[in-house]
Design a protein around this nucleic acid. Structure first.
Lengths: 362, 362
DNA sequence: CTACAATATGTAAACGTTTACATCACCATT
DNA sequence: AATGGTGATGTAAACGTTTACATATTGTAG
């Protein structure tokens, strides 16, 4: 292992003290232009790279940002991580990405891990922002942080995400407006994440506002979607009228639902409509495209970095921001094909603004 | 920012020297059982976490593994990263994951970055293992590393991956065996990654062995697949017989190709067969499933960690390993529906072993 | 009873930075 | 000419560990 070149080597090579070299590197204080050049040349020549370890030790800043996401393989968080990494790189920061696997204990241990690395700040998506030991720990440690995707009701240091409640409510009225009266929802990780909860609550509220009842609620394991196949085939094997539309709390679930329905001989969207949530690439790579609430995942990542930076440097009071989502048209959401139930008939109302979202906490 | 508790605090709290505490924590040397208990209790009580920075500085080991992957959002690498992180966690290591965005310069700078962090070793997928500045730098620095997905011809410290050449060749004979005679290939990042090159070379070799010629080669940008739509519509708008099967060098490309073909009114696999490469989840979440060469991505990650550990500790001579892939049956690969060209008729031969793969380097 | 190994702990230096403080030269103001 | 400000650099301490070496305490064999 070739000995790494240190600041001392540079100092020696230039006939300067390490202090001066350090000042040049961080361009702090007043240095002669010629000295700067000399040092920079030496840095180039010897291939010097400051040791992050030593930097962190002096507890100034090691230009490292901790990141905790629930899953590396879920495209939503992968995209968020990509956006964040890009922005961090632009600003000269390195992200240290950890996955919590949707597990509270791992979430907490990830925070401890990041604390041990003395990161300058943390970007994270927690399972449930209303009751997160990880978040409390960060508050306690006084480390700046910014939540991604979580949009908590209580006050937090910072957050960037979309209004899941409102978006889900909008989906509900949109579905109803197309004549559907028997509507189901497929939700994953229901008790585990605040997003799923908000989406469920929003969807219910939207349906209620539109005067429709939720016909079915299918809950499945978020990771491997166990139980989906069974639940769906049970529902569709029963007599009577089946749901003509399903809202799925995320796109992965929506794609699994479509695959299952098609395997059961139902055509999407001719027989049954599907709406997802997230707008992942895999949804766009099919024909017809998966109708979905498209969330700006890359931007959630990069905006979170910006907000965190503001916190770190300006100690700004800006506490968070809701980003716009986009409910796409067409795709796997179509007008109902069967005759609607006789008792339906109220006109959809677009005034979603009147919806109250501050109640439905489970 | 609450002052972090250090090893000194523990020492003071226990009436011991820092040396003893350090020894307890790393359980090195001989310590009285009662002392161990006392220290561990204090660690628990005060919530002590050793500073990674200080550890790294003493240049022992900071139990950190550097990771470089071409993309966070490509499911293949996301899965690999997930597998690797899981295994690393098991062994008490923390992965520091960086994305190179398929860019050689970023690849190199990522290596420099990891070197600055004094990681114990590096796990990485490079664009092209035969000419990688990043790899040379690692060799020069003497840092243990293990390639993931790259299966280089020259000697390297370590690698874990599948035999892309052989797998692609197998795909070729499989397609031909189903009666296809007009076969195309869609390849991304062709000049950029050794995987795409090996798959192309293997496919060509396989076709040649089966006595078929490649009818079309469509090359597209790996990231956004620009040019795919244009190329395909040009090919299918021409007079004459069109390809009845396409091999795509990865699943993302395969899904995009299917979407495009279906948008052009072709049915998959009734009119045209598609075979991908990687076996990503999105391919399995459609009906019919995307036929693909399934690579053990999670295992590539975890096996790489194991191999790297062997390198770090045992200075083992084990230099690399090829993992099994699996070419799935059915799905989007079906027997040809049109009449095959009159001049075809040779029987496929399963003796792929005779294929020589040591020639086709671009 | 002495001596020597083994066990258990303490002391202090080192790792590569950053930074408060000191120094020195130079020039401008009184 | 003395004073003081400013610009450029050096000195040395500190950050939280690990670890070679020293020391102290035992048990045990001669």
């Amino acid at each position: 292992m070739a000995k790494a070149v240190t600041i001392k080597d540079i100092a020696q090579h230039c006939g300067l003290s390490v202090a001066t070299v350090s000042r040049v590197i961080n361009n702090k204080g007043a240095i002669r232009a010629e000295t700067v050049e000399r040092v920079e040349a030496a840095v180039q020549a010897l291939g010097y790279r400051p040791s992050m370890a030593a930097r962190a030790l002096k507890s100034a800043s090691n230009r490292t940002l901790g990141v905790i996401i629930p899953s590396l393989t879920n495209p939503v968080f992968a995209e968020t991580a990509a956006g964040l990494q890009q922005q961090a790189r632009l600003l000269g920061y390195t992200p240290l990405i950890l996955s919590s696997d949707y597990d509270d204990a791992l979430e907490s241990s990830a925070v401890e891990n990041l604390l041990a690395y003395q990161v300058d700040g943390v970007l994270l998506t927690v399972n449930d922002a209303t009751s997160s030991a990880a978040l409390e720990r960060l508050d306690e440690a006084g480390v700046p942080y910014c939540l991604m995707h979580n949009v908590p009701r209580q006050r937090v240091a910072g957050f960037i995400g979309v209004d899941n409640f409102r978006a889900a409510a909008e989906v509900a009225t949109r579905i109803q407006a197309l004549g559907h009266t028997r509507i189901g929802m497929v939700s994953g990780d229901f008790m585990r994440t605040d997003r799923a909860r908000d989406r469920y609550a929003g969807f219910l509220a939207g349906l209620k506002y539109a005067g429709v009842e939720l016909a079915h609620l299918v809950q499945v394991d978020p990771v491997n979607a166990t139980g989906l196949q069974e639940s769906l085939s049970r529902i569709y094997s029963q007599e009577g009228s089946h749901p003509t539309a399903w809202f799925c709390s995320n796109d992965l679930l929506a794609l699994a639902t479509i695959a299952q329905l098609e395997a059961m001989g139902r055509s999407v969207p001719d027989d049954v409509s599907i709406v997802g949530f997230d707008g992942i690439q895999a949804g766009a790579l099919r024909q017809p495209m998966l109708t979905s609430v498209r969330t700006p995942n890359l931007e959630i990542g990069s905006a979170s970095v910006d907000l965190l930076m503001a916190q770190i440097h300006d100690t700004s009071s800006n506490t968070g921001r809701k980003l716009d989502y986009h409910l796409m048209e067409g795709g796997t959401l179509a007008a109902v094909s069967e005759m609607p139930d006789p008792d339906s008939g109220n006109t959809p109302d677009p005034h979603l603004q009147s919806l109250d979202e501050s109640k439905d906490d489970a």
